[in-house]
C-alpha cells in the first residue's frame, strides 16, 4: 500500500505517469466517469480549506466514487479530545482512501503509520503540500512542455509556504533546474530545504527584489503571506504586502514566462495580471482536479 506524504515519496517516473494519466483524464473525462464507482474517499480537514477539499471531492465524484468527511476540526471528535491516531483508526474502517489536512507538521505521516487505507497529505501546517505540487508540476509541464532546464522563481512567504517546500523538493530532481528564491529575510526558505539543495549541488540564488531577477525566470511562483502561520500579528502586517506582482513589474519579464500561484491570493497579484497570457494560475486550479483524480486512481490500484 502506498501513501503520498511527501512529493519525494514518488520517483520522477511515478510522477510522470500520474501526470500522463491526468492529461488523459483532462482530455477525455467521460472515459473515467464510472472508474471509482463503489469507492469512498474520506476528506479529513482538521484545518479549513476551500480549494483543496473541493478539488479532492470533485475529483472523486467525477469518477463515480463517494465522499465523506469533515471540513473543520470542530466538527470532528478531535473537539472532544480524540487523538489523531484514534480518528485515523476509525475512519480507515469507513473508506477506501483518506485525504487529510492538519495544522500540525507531520500529522499525515503519523496517520499513515497506522492507517489501513492509503493516506494523502492534503497539507500539514507550513510543511508540505504534495498534491498542490502535483498540480504545479502538471501546470508547468503543460505550459513549458518540460520539467527540466528551467529557472524557477519562488516569491513571497518562502518560510511557511508549504507549497514552495514541496515544489523545490520535486523540481530539484530534474536536470538543469535553477531556483531563484525571492523573499524578505524573515521569510526565507527554511534551512532544511536549502541544506538539501547545497548537499545535492543544485544551484539557487536568494534575492530580495523581484524586479532584479525577473528577466531570468521561466516560471514565477507567487505565494501569499499567510496570516494563520504567524504567532505575532504585527509581523504579519509588516510583511504581508512586501511583493505585489503587477503589469509594471511584468515589463521586465520574458514573453514566455508562466506565472503560477497556489491560490487563494490576497493582493500579491494584481487582478490586471489575470488577463495576461502568461498568467497560468486559474489553469492550475483546473489541473488540480484532474491530477487528484489520477493520484486517487494510482493509489487505489496499489491498495
Amino acid at each position: 500500500m502506498r501513501h503520498l506524504i511527501n512529493i519525494t515519496d514518488f520517483s520522477t517516473g511515478e510522477i510522470e505517469s500520474i501526470l500522463d494519466l491526468a492529461d488523459q483524464m483532462l482530455s477525455h473525462p467521460e472515459k473515467y466517469r464510472e472508474s471509482q464507482r463503489g469507492r469512498i474517499l474520506a476528506t479529513l480537514f482538521f484545518e479549513p480549506s476551500t480549494r483543496t477539499r473541493l478539488s479532492f471531492e470533485s475529483a472523486m465524484l467525477s469518477m463515480g466514487g463517494s465522499v465523506l468527511g469533515f471540513a473543520t476540526a470542530d466538527s470532528s471528535s478531535t473537539s472532544k479530545g480524540e487523538s489523531l491516531t484514534d480518528t485515523i483508526h476509525t475512519v480507515s474502517c469507513y473508506c477506501d482512501i483518506i485525504a487529510m489536512r492538519h495544522p500540525k507538521e507531520g500529522a499525515p505521516l503519523a496517520g499513515s503509520l497506522i492507517s489501513e487505507v492509503p493516506v494523502i497529505n492534503a497539507g500539514d501546517g507550513g510543511h508540505n503540500h504534495p498534491t498542490q505540487t502535483l498540480t504545479d508540476l502538471m501546470t508547468i509541464r503543460r505550459e513549458k512542455g518540460r520539467l527540466d532546464r528551467l529557472t524557477v522563481g519562488m516569491c513571497g512567504d518562502l518560510k511557511f509556504g508549504r507549497t514552495v517546500h514541496s515544489l523545490i523538493g520535486a523540481m530539484s530532481r530534474y536536470e538543469g533546474v535553477d531556483f531563484v528564491l525571492i523573499s524578505p529575510p524573515e521569510l526565507r526558505v527554511p534551512d532544511y530545504v536549502t541544506s538539501r539543495l547545497r548537499a545535492e549541488g543544485i544551484p539557487y540564488t536568494e534575492a530580495e527584489s523581484m524586479e532584479s531577477v525577473m528577466d531570468r525566470l521561466d516560471v514565477l511562483y507567487m505565494t501569499r503571506v499567510q496570516r494563520e502561520r504567524f504567532f505575532n500579528e504585527a509581523d504579519y502586517i509588516r510583511l504581508k504586502d512586501t511583493y505585489i506582482l503587477d503589469t509594471d513589474k511584468l515589463r521586465f519579464a520574458r514573453d514566455d514566462l508562466s506565472i503560477l500561484h497556489p491560490l487563494p491570493r490576497v493582493n500579491e497579484i494584481s487582478v490586471k495580471v489575470d488577463a495576461d497570457p502568461r498568467a497560468a494560475y486559474f489553469k492550475q486550479v483546473k489541473n488540480g482536479r484532474y491530477v487528484r483524480m489520477a493520484l486517487i486512481t494510482k493509489l487505489l490500484e496499489q491498495a
Binding site: 487523538s83 489523531l84 491516531t85 492538519h102 495544522p103 500540525k104 507538521e105 507531520g106 500529522a107 505521516l109 503519523a110 500539514d124 501546517g125 507550513g126 510543511h127 532544511y192 541544506s195 548537499a199
Partner: peptide, 28 residues
C-alpha cells in the same frame, strides 16, 4: 508546530541527515 507536540502517544523518531555534521531530523 510538530504533531509530536500534541500527540503524546507518538514515538519521537529522528533520522540521520548528515553523518559528517551529526545532524538528525525529525521524521514528522
Amino acid at each position: 508546530r510538530c504533531i509530536t507536540s500534541v500527540e503524546p502517544a507518538l514515538d519521537h523518531v529522528f533520522v540521520l541527515a548528515d553523518r559528517e555534521k551529526g545532524v538528525y531530523r525529525c521524521i514528522y
